[in-house]
Design a protein around this nucleic acid. Sequence first.
DNA 1: ATTGGAGATCGTCAGTTGACGACTTGTTTC
DNA 2: GAAACAAGTCGTCAACTGACGATCTCCAAT
Lengths: 232, 232
Amino acid sequence: MNAQLTRLQPRARKTTQGTAKGRKSDRTRMASQDRRRQILDKAADFFAQYGLTAQTRGLATACGISQRLLYRYFPTKDVLIEEVYRAAIAGPFKAVWFSELSDRNKPLEERLNHFYKDYFATIFTSRWLRLFMHASLADVGMAPNYTSSMILQLLEMIVAEAACEQDVATPLNKDVQHEIGWTLHGALSHYAIRRHIYGFAQHAPEDTVVAVHVAHFLGGFRSAVAAWSRRP
Amino acid sequence: MNAQLTRLQPRARKTTQGTAKGRKSDRTRMASQDRRRQILDKAADFFAQYGLTAQTRGLATACGISQRLLYRYFPTKDVLIEEVYRAAIAGPFKAVWFSELSDRNKPLEERLNHFYKDYFATIFTSRWLRLFMHASLADVGMAPNYTSSMILQLLEMIVAEAACEQDVATPLNKDVQHEIGWTLHGALSHYAIRRHIYGFAQHAPEDTVVAVHVAHFLGGFRSAVAAWSRRP
DNA sequence: ATTGGAGATCGTCAGTTGACGACTTGTTTC
DNA sequence: GAAACAAGTCGTCAACTGACGATCTCCAAT
């Protein structure tokens, strides 16, 4: 719970005279854009691990720079967090997923397996999940706002593709589409949460879990649509 | 993200003389055990809402007492949190669930619906879920330690009951049992997380979601066992 | 070499926060 | 009704934390 880190750098030695040659200074001088990127990247890891309330001093140490320098690149901690969020949470979503999922030249099962393989590598990572969870807990509404639209569209597409392939009418109500989609997506999300947040030991490899859940979803799709059509 | 609360009580007025009768003091004097229970209860709500890093002053205000008084009942904040966790996370699990789930006089579908109806009322509450998530994020391993054993036993029982009712051999490997059980339990957990942590708007009522997922689980159980038996 | 702009740090301030010694006040008991 | 005990509060301390003015130092262009 404590993000306090011990100081790594022994602190730049005060040169007795300007002519102290030979030993280079501890400072690493970076181009503005590189430094900025480095801070954002480290900050994503740092806040993912220790939460959004972790201290700027700890982050600075993790970056190997002084705390003051953070404020040259970001006016406030909140702004920094905002940018971390944009870069590390909303950023990783890929537009190709939409075109790949709707490529009807391949069977849907294959598409879904491929999609979730990529999704696990990109979104269902420790960093993404923990950041997302920290943000969701801290600020009601911030976390979903960036991502909910994308996720819901993915769900709609998955359900529409399944309906097409199985020759079933797509449910008209979008809420019902989402609910059906969540059957698969929620189960896999929860697997990722167990793994990266709860710290449950994992036995079955990712690919197997994905394959089983995808098969289960497609196998029960027809009756799921029927069930949801009956109920409100 | 800020748990700072404005002071509610206008602060006890300093009586000019001991004989100031008529107006009662603002202080509410409670029996030790009652006060302790009240603090634990309020603290569960408070930490669930603002996270485990929320301040003791805010909690005291929420309880309507001075911050100092907290330290009469709990030596440190960490001890308080530990007790909150025991009372509000591990406490609500009911032993009856095990006997009810294994009561083969009723069809499993009915048992599962009844079980999850109770589980949603007891465990899948905003308070429980948020506390559990805060604790999981803060301290790797603390959260599951109190509960994982109970949850995994529930999963084993559900899978065993399903196997019995459908006349399938129960998978020997416990990891496989858990993985199959998580199909249902994880999906419903994630529904609760969406609702109470992500703040997703909910359309379908709880009972319906439970019913559909239970039906989906039972309907696909036979093939799930088959799939997991094939794979490692 | 000189110079000046930009990368980087030091030191510090004001507000916060867990903790606690000293004190006050209500209630119970004889 | 006063003694004695426990519930409750005040005020404060030291460490922590976000923020920032002043300063230093590296490098490139002149």
